[in-house]
Design a protein around this nucleic acid. Structure first.
Lengths: 231, 231
DNA sequence: ACCTGAACACCGTTCAAGT
DNA sequence: ACCTGAACACCGTTCAAGT
């Protein structure tokens, strides 16, 4: 009986906040597949049904987990020193987005979950507000900034969804699959060969994600700046 | 007994192809959530376990469903007349991608499923080959085309993932949610107000997806052409 | 007010058995 | 070779009951 009260005393009472932070930790550690209501409850030393007193259902848990992660994005990006926004809006926004990207590396499940959210999550709204503020300070009209937000899409949050993910485990079965189609896809074969030749280190990992992310980001930022200057 | 043999005779034998086409039809009609092994089997007049003789597991069904849809993309895009590729590569690629987009409207579940696929799906590989061929005919180096494919991402297949999806059913709970944050997101409030003012018809649907898609696409195509010309 | 246990209606998938 | 039925190990979630 004393052991029981000790266990109860040793853990703070359940709360929405505690549930959501536990959800993020669980997904970080064991992957999004391990984030089930039963696992989450166990993590908190509680029965699964207790969770429903603090969150409506599992969708709300996922919404909340995204909320926690994007709040971290805001904190880190605000703390990262960047050029003053009105001086060079592209550099300011670039710095903010790349700062966000470093945070997402710690929550690899988050991009996929963010893309499945239909609802408006407060911290995500605040993040886009901060992006929009930089664009406005840089002299973009609301109309152009609006187009810009759509054009950036998830890139404004620091990530893109890779369509050809690098083979997870051991060997590159993907390259074999490509080789099987060789006759049908001559340009792809030539491109892979040439890219591999340019940078031998990149042969295994397909592509340098960070460099590609920055290339695409700069393409969009430059295009927006060009349209601002022309307006 | 005669009814049984009639039923058997009336349906062709199960095959991978029949399973995958049924999967696409089921997802088109009832949504991706309705695509379960049991539902899919019922659709084919068969028991769930029979499916496993033609596909390895459910992941293979999803891979195959994407394969079928992207094959349709290829067929439609090939049939759509576009400017010859070497004349104006941007117009050629633009036409091809917008043709693909029209097909995806008939398979609204497909974008989300495509983004979750890690494996290399033959028709997707062939699609990127055709995109790459247009870029090469336009004079882009393999290196620049490679960057371009990454920068386009899912846009090369005709879609982007909207981060703020329009409210599904009845009322705009999203606008209420935004109003609650009004003090914290002044620029967003102002932007929505101004955009709504410019085009009163757009008040409900948030934004014009097609126009935004084309804006972002052109931003990227123009940027790539500029870098080609500078090289 | 907060937490629990048993139960319900689903999943994907295995296995051994049928024809 | 192809299909089936029963069963297993999971899900999210409800409900009525405990404290």
């Amino acid at each position: 009986v004393s052991a029981e009260s000790e266990a109860v005393a040793s853990r703070p009472p359940l709360s929405r906040d505690r549930v959501l932070h536990a959800a993020v930790e669980l997904a970080d550690r064991d992957g999004i597949g391990a984030l089930t209501m039963r696992n989450l409850a166990q993590e908190l030393g509680v029965e699964a049904m207790s969770l429903y007193h603090h969150v409506r259902n599992k969708e709300a848990v996922l919404d909340g987990a995204v909320e926690v992660v994007v709040e971290e994005l805001l904190t880190v990006a605000d703390a990262t020193s960047t050029p003053p926004a009105d001086e060079d809006w592209r550099a300011a926004l670039r710095g903010r987005i790349l700062a966000a990207r470093t945070v997402l590396f710690r929550h690899p499940w988050a991009p996929a979950v963010i893309e499945t959210r239909a609802s408006m999550i407060p911290s995500v709204v605040r993040w886009f507000e901060s992006v929009l503020a930089i664009m406005r300070a840089g002299g973009l009209s609301y109309d152009l900034a609006h187009h810009g937000l759509h054009a950036l899409g998830s890139r404004a949050l620091g990530f893109t969804q890779e369509l050809f993910a690098p083979p997870e485990g051991e060997d590159d079965g993907s390259l074999d699959a490509l080789a099987q189609l060789a006759d049908e896809v001559p340009h792809l074969i030539a491109m892979v060969a040439e890219t591999a030749h340019d940078d031998p280190d990149a042969t295994l990992g397909w592509c340098d994600d960070q460099a590609e992310f920055e290339f695409g980001l700069d393409l969009l930022l430059d295009g927006l700046e060009r349209r601002r200057a022309a307006s």
